[in-house]
Simulated scan of single mutants.
Amino acid sequence: MTSLQPDAILDASGLNCPEPVMMLHNKVRDLHGGDLLKVIATDPSTRRDIPKFCVFLGHELLEQAEQDGQYLYWIRKKVD
């Protein structure tokens, strides 16, 4: 598992598409450029949706993992 220390954590466990990405969009707005966000999700569709979100908006997906039925993502907010 990663040793990255997030500035914020978004727990979207139990939520289904499109809620995790909608919550992610709102959470990223509250972060400063360069901040690291850890996202925890249980919806398998996030494996597709979160990487696409990052590419589309220019954020950096540093790492993603699957552990004990959870999908974990570490996202660095783009610096404006």
Rank of each mutant, 00 (worst) to 15 (best):
L31M: 15
T42I: 09
P51E: 11
L24W: 00
Y71L: 13
D80T: 11
S45D: 09
R76K: 15
D68A: 15
D43Y: 01
L24N: 00
K38V: 02
A41G: 03
R47M: 13
R76T: 05
F56P: 03
L4E: 10
K52E: 13
V79S: 13
L57C: 08
P20L: 02
T42M: 05
E60K: 14
P18R: 02
T2F: 09
H25Q: 09
L10K: 04
P6D: 08
R47E: 15
R76E: 10
L61A: 05
L62F: 04
H32F: 10
L62I: 13
Q70W: 00
R47G: 12
E63F: 08
N16E: 12
D11T: 05
D30Q: 15
R76P: 03
E19C: 00
E19T: 01
E66G: 07
R47A: 14
Y71K: 01
D49L: 09
T2L: 09
I50C: 00
M23L: 15
E60F: 07
K52N: 13
L61T: 05
R47Q: 15
D49E: 13
L37P: 08
E63G: 03
K38N: 03
A12K: 00
C17L: 10
F56H: 15
S3I: 13
H25G: 11
I75K: 01
T42G: 06
G69S: 06
R48F: 12
G69H: 06
P18Q: 02
D80G: 12
T46W: 02
Q70Y: 04
N16L: 14
M1P: 10
Q5V: 15
S45G: 01
V39Q: 01
K27Q: 12
G34V: 08
C17E: 11
L4S: 08
E66C: 09
R29E: 11
E63N: 11
D35G: 06
L15E: 09
L36R: 08
N16C: 08
P51W: 04
L61F: 04
A8I: 03
R29V: 08
I40R: 04
K52F: 09
E63K: 12
T42L: 06
D68C: 07
V79M: 13
K77I: 08
Y71E: 02
